[in-house]
Simulated assay, not measured.
Amino acid sequence: MYDILVYLFENYYTPQSCPRAEILASKLAAVGFEHDDINDALNWLRSLASSTERCLPLALPEGPHPAATRIYTSNEYAALGSEAIGFITFLEISGSLPPALREILIETAQEADSFPLSLSEIKVLALMVLWSQEAEVDHLVFEELLADDDNRLSH
């Protein structure tokens, strides 16, 4: 699934340039991705769209106070793991991940197929959340999102 998400990021400049799910599935299969991975990726993208609808109201002026601290539930901590939570905190502190996008990332990360998430996995999911919202990302943060970790994605 993660390789497909990276492929989408690399091949479609904006989410709007992605074809509909049926056409995208055919294109991904033609490139050589496995059917199960394609289904997982498309399901994750549907989850991303659903989470976005629920969480974007947090971006309104009456949303969370900028100095508010996010407390993770025990379920979130178990699903994400300390490495992923640390990376989410890094993105927040750097100003790259506002509260609404953080909540979208947390929700969609919990839809992943393995727990806790590796650093490589949370980076790909964060990249896709930012890509889906066409968010501006600092160049150094962008490089960190694209950095190839030792435990490269194998799912």
Results as ranks from 00 to 15, higher is better:
R46K: 14
L105Y: 04
L42R: 05
A78Y: 13
E62R: 14
A68E: 12
F33P: 01
W44G: 00
R54S: 09
N43M: 10
T52C: 06
F87H: 04
E62Y: 13
A49P: 01
S26F: 13
E34P: 02
L80I: 03
L58K: 07
A84C: 09
N75R: 12
E76V: 07
P99K: 08
L45M: 11
I38H: 01
E22G: 08
P64F: 07
S74P: 00
I93G: 00
E22P: 01
P99E: 03
R54H: 11
A30T: 11
E107A: 09
R20K: 13
A100I: 06
R46D: 10
A41I: 04
G32C: 09
L28E: 02
P61I: 15
N39P: 00
S50P: 00
A79V: 07
D36S: 12
T73Q: 11
S50F: 06
A30Q: 15
A79D: 04
N43T: 09
A79M: 11
P64T: 07
L58G: 05
F33A: 03
A29R: 14
F33Q: 04
N39G: 04
G32Q: 06
P19V: 01
F90S: 10
G32I: 08
P99H: 09
S94C: 11
T52G: 11
T108W: 05
A49W: 04
S96D: 06
E53K: 12
C18M: 15
W44M: 02
V31F: 13
L24G: 02
L80R: 06
E76P: 04
P57Y: 13
F87A: 04
E53V: 07
E103W: 04
L105F: 01
S50T: 13
L48F: 10
P57A: 11
L101N: 06
L105P: 02
S47F: 09
L24H: 02
A79H: 06
V31Q: 12
P99Q: 03
P98I: 02
R102K: 12
G86C: 04
G95L: 06
P99M: 06
I23A: 15
I71A: 13
F33Y: 12
E76L: 04
A21F: 11
I88G: 05
F87I: 05
L101W: 04
P61Q: 14
A68Q: 13
C55L: 05
S26K: 15
T52E: 05
R70I: 07
S94K: 15
F90C: 03
I106P: 01
T108M: 08
P19N: 03
L45Y: 04
Y72M: 11
Y77Q: 15
G95M: 02
S50E: 14
I38D: 02
E92W: 05
C18I: 05
S47P: 00
E107P: 00
L56I: 14
S26H: 15
S94P: 00
C18R: 15
R102S: 03
F90V: 00
S17M: 07
L42M: 08
E83S: 13
P19G: 10
S94H: 06
T89V: 06
E22T: 08
I88F: 09
F87L: 06
